[in-house]
């Protein structure tokens, strides 16, 4: 498959300045049963007003602790679950207006953590890869599948006729990547796609992702709990806490200096790699709170060492960090005039 062929499945419509995806105030709440003997019904506010753009050709990393809503956000972007509120604009086209789920799913593909569960055990891997293109009526699906196998480093003559259980975890994840690319997507969402792999295999797959991005002009959303991996792969990073965006900005800026106290704690919790400089104090005490009944105001106030009265009373909004237009954080400290003792007094400087 040649470069032009791969890109031709979906045209660039909005031009280079148009973000590939605009997520506007996404909300997804799940009803769950809770309490003793499951008598009480409650709501998990899994994604609770999340907004961001994905710029064409970039890799946006999403980090945050278990249950903060990363996968739910991803499933909303790809149309796998329905939005409760909010909107998605794909290359200028509004979902539900200009384009339907079918077009969105064609342009956005996803690769999951569990390489085994996402492949049909009864199909050879070449059939698995060709399956989607066949359904979509794309040209020569089998040739395309063999080309892609070669492209992800699995020699077609040796591997095409194998079944998923005859491959290692790293090889299966390559098949999943090939399968996503077979649909000629423009955006690939990688949800913990390398997390189950051994370190040495993970490095191989990361090299592959970088090569494919260049070759096919792809845009990635990369979800991972490994901050080293996210730093290596991402241009920008989005940090979530309990269903909300707490910080977003260029990767270098955030890795150099975290603006939000939660981001700072998350980074400080990374194990040290220096035996002479081990961690002395855990940056945070306790577990993340229950998303069923999130804290009022700033959801981080129950664990934040800078918390003041205003933090429990009022929800902070994403505000630009002084000196960097592209770097935003939702914390009263960074919101001029918020009333927090560390914030600037006036809304205008």
């Amino acid at each position: 498959m040649s470069k032009t062929e791969a890109g031709s499945g979906q045209q660039d419509r909005g031009g280079p300045g148009q973000p590939l995806i605009i997520a506007k105030d996404l909300k997804k709440h799940f009803p769950v049963r809770s309490g003793l003997f499951n008598r009480r019904s409650a709501t998990v506010r899994a994604v609770d007003g999340v907004s961001f753009d994905v710029i064409k050709g970039e890799t946006l990393g999403i980090v945050g602790e278990s249950g903060c809503g990363k996968s739910t956000t991803a499933r909303l972007l790809i149309g796998l679950i329905e939005l409760d509120e909010g909107g998605i604009i794909f290359d200028g086209d509004t979902l539900g207006g200009d384009i339907g789920l079918k077009e969105l799913r064609r342009g956005v593909q996803m690769v999951f953590q569990d390489s085994y569960a996402s492949l049909n055990p009864r199909l050879t891997i070449v059939d698995s890869i060709a399956f989607g293109p066949k359904i979509q009526g794309l040209d020569k699906p089998m040739d395309r599948a063999r080309d892609l196998l070669a492209r992800v480093g699995l020699e077609p003559d040796r591997f095409a006729q194998r079944y998923p259980h005859e491959l290692s975890g790293g090889q299966r994840q390559r098949v999943n990547i090939a399968r996503a690319l077979a649909m000629e997507p423009r955006l690939v969402i990688l949800d913990e796609a390398v997390s189950a792999l051994d370190k040495s295999v993970e490095a191989q797959v990361l090299n592959l992702l970088n090569d494919l991005r260049r070759e096919f002009g792809l845009t990635y959303v990369f979800i991972s709990h490994d901050l080293n991996v996210v730093r290596y792969i991402s241009d920008r990073v989005l940090v979530m806490y309990l269903g909300e965006v707490v910080e977003i900005g260029p990767s270098e800026a955030i890795y150099a200096k975290q603006a939000h106290p939660y981001t700072a704690s998350l980074f400080a919790a990374m194990p040290s790699m220096d035996p002479d400089n081990r961690t002395d104090e855990p940056p945070l005490a306790g577990d993340p709170p229950n998303p069923i009944d999130p804290p009022s105001g700033c959801r981080f106030h129950t664990r934040c060492r800078f918390a003041e009265d205003v933090c429990a009373a009022r929800k902070p909004v994403l505000s630009v960090i002084a000196g960097d237009e592209a770097h935003l954080a939702a914390c009263h400290i960074h919101e001029p005039g918020s009333g927090h003792s560390l914030a600037k007094r006036e809304a205008a400087e």
């Binding site: 278990s66 901050l227 919790a269 194990p271 104090e281 940056p283 005490a285 993340p288």
Partner: peptide, 11 residues
């Protein structure tokens, strides 16, 4: 475990 909980348990 979550990153912020993992470091607590290690220490």
């Amino acid at each position: 475990l979550d990153a912020t909980v993992q470091i607590q348990i290690l220490l």
